[in-house]
Simulated scan of single mutants.
Amino acid sequence: MRIGLLTPDPGHPLLAATAALLAPDHRVESLDANRDDLPPADLLGPGPLADVYLLKARTPQALALARHLEERGAPVVNSAAATAFCQDRTAMADLALRSGLPFAATRTAAALTELPDPDYPLVIKSRHSRRGDLVALVDDAARLRALAEEWPDEPVVAQPYLAGTGWDQKLWVVDGQVFCARRRSELAEPAGEPAEGGAFGPRELPADRAGLARRVGEVFGLDVYGVDLLDGPAEPDIVDINAFPGIRGQAGAPEALAALALRVARQGGGHRVPAPRDARRDTAGR
């Protein structure tokens, strides 16, 4: 089998470990999906496509390449549609809430200055998830004005601040297999405290949390993804959903990813390319 890695960083621990598991019997190829100097067809070059591609990138260039591969009949994990959908926090919250998932109530504004009647404290995030985006806890109007000056034209979402322990429950799913850890919230990072807190592995994960994580994959059409849950009195509110996160340091995750890649590769053109429910409904309605 030929397995393609769509990533600018094939040395990422998860991908490198997965490739090492596959390499003895299969051909693993890496393609820098973030290159913008060539169109997708030229970037791929001549010859047959790989049997499956793992999309570990979220840039516009990477998504365009993934869509091109899907149009040519190659299975991509996660699909371009599902990956792109999870970058829009407004669409994500709307679909999650309509699907009955415990997602934080979310309001959207074209800019910070257009937020209607903020109720402090609140959490502000860039509407479009990307590296270096805006994520901040806002306690008062002065802090909001300061952020508006720093991010004057940034579309944002606002969510009520929910008191927690200062930690997030990080759940990662690979083809239905759930991994987890407790990590410091990016809204609360006290100096000198460890980034990971206490024993919180699959054995400590309540069955309802694992079920919730798998339900997210069904709703959003994801095979490899992360679900961030609030750790505290208001749990299990979902804080964020990420397509193909790093999943670092999780025993068994490379094995699960390698098995998923081979399963999809063997299914070939018969693999159902997942998409969020909204995308599936829109396609069916055309």
Rank of each mutant, 00 (worst) to 15 (best):
4 G>V: 13
5 L>E: 06
6 L>N: 02
9 D>I: 13
10 P>A: 08
11 G>W: 14
15 L>T: 01
19 A>W: 08
22 L>A: 07
24 P>R: 10
27 R>L: 11
28 V>D: 01
32 D>G: 10
34 N>S: 15
39 P>C: 12
39 P>L: 02
50 A>M: 05
53 Y>G: 00
54 L>D: 00
54 L>Q: 03
59 T>L: 01
60 P>V: 00
60 P>T: 04
64 A>H: 10
65 L>Y: 12
65 L>M: 10
77 V>K: 01
78 N>P: 11
97 L>I: 15
102 P>Q: 06
102 P>C: 06
108 T>W: 11
109 A>F: 02
121 P>V: 00
123 V>M: 11
125 K>I: 03
131 R>L: 14
136 A>G: 10
138 V>G: 07
141 A>G: 11
147 L>N: 08
148 A>Q: 04
150 E>N: 12
162 L>I: 08
165 T>L: 05
166 G>Q: 00
173 V>K: 02
184 R>Y: 13
184 R>V: 14
187 L>W: 13
191 A>T: 15
196 E>R: 15
197 G>N: 12
199 A>D: 15
206 P>L: 02
213 A>M: 00
220 F>K: 01
223 D>A: 14
232 G>R: 04
248 R>T: 11
249 G>R: 10
253 A>E: 01
270 G>Q: 12
271 H>R: 09
271 H>Q: 07
274 P>Y: 04
276 P>S: 07
281 R>E: 11
286 R>T: 15
